[in-house]
């Protein structure tokens, strides 16, 4: 088996996915099977010079800096599972807590 249950568990934490206890053995086996299968590209000599292929336009187009938000047929309050006084709500986080690969309050 190419991946251990421990490794899959770590990946599941990174992906914020709960997996039922009973599902672990089969999942670990399937993950191993898939990863072994796709690893066959490692056997091909990697041509270092080969640039990655990016489909689509060669250069990004630029938008003018005008305030022109796309309309919403439903407002956040109508979509959110928990909403109060204009805010989305989640269970309380400590300001010092990073739930996943968190960063405190601001983007990094």
């Amino acid at each position: 088996m190419s991946v251990s249950r421990d490794e899959v568990q770590k990946i599941a934490q990174l992906a914020e996915l709960h997996v039922d206890e009973a599902a672990w053995p089969a999942l670990t086996e399937q993950m191993s099977r898939i990863l072994d299968y796709v690893a066959q590209i490692a056997g091909v000599a990697a041509t270092e010079s080969e640039k990655p292929f990016i489909p689509g336009p060669a250069a990004v187009r630029f938008r003018a800096d005008t305030v022109d938000p796309a309309p919403l047929a439903l407002q956040p309050a109508q979509m959110a599972p928990a909403f109060r006084e204009g805010f989305f709500l989640v269970p309380r986080l400590d300001a010092f807590e990073a739930p996943g690969e968190g960063t405190g309050e601001d983007a990094e």
Binding site: E85, L89, P91, D106
Partner: peptide, 16 residues
Amino acid sequence: AGKSLHDRFAKATAVD
């Protein structure tokens, strides 16, 4: 990113 307000409500973090 948006803003998380941890002190706005008693038991919830508010996201703007």
